[in-house]
Amino acid sequence: MSCEEPTTSPTPENNITVVSSDGKEFLLDLKLTEQSETLARLISNFEYDRTDVKKDPVPLGNITSAQMQKIIEWLQHHRYYPKWEQNDIHYSTSFTFETWVEEYLNIPNNEMFELLNAANYLNIPRLFSTICRIMASRITGKSAEQIRTVLNIKTDVKNDVYTGIPIQEDSSSSEDGMSEISLSPSPPPI
């Protein structure tokens, strides 16, 4: 197991093996898997929490070893945290994060994207919500043009909503039958 400072050493009785998409095996403490609803359900269904049951390695085809390592780091840190309670009524402007979380998620956006997918796949609500909140807070105070840059959105609006200047079209993302943006301005001056 590659995570740092494990509180208790995993033994064959209290752990399972998960296999990442690139074939690397990770020994995972059953206590940690409680944070992942996917793994917890799997363990419950196959009765892997019983000592007399043979535990086959669990393949995680959607998760790379790097992502798994990152996830284990998260699970270890939150090992003794109370169960996550979903609270969606707050806006992105009101989010604050603890220093450890900020450092943990100080990663390139593409890694963040993959980590969010992994958190979604393994159903780790605290990690999933935290990444969603961080992503939402990155939009705060940004104009449409800035959001296009941050989220790499290619516009499919024929005229730019600010100037009326035609902008390159992205036919792949446009939808047939969509109405024109009602805030579209008058045609650009010739």
């Binding site: 939009i139 449409a144 296009r148 989220l151 499919d156 609006v157 446009s174 805030l183």
Partner: peptide, 8 residues
């Protein structure tokens, strides 16, 4: 603001 980025 996001909705203004594109029709999609």
């Amino acid at each position: 603001s996001l909705s203004l980025t594109s029709r999609h």
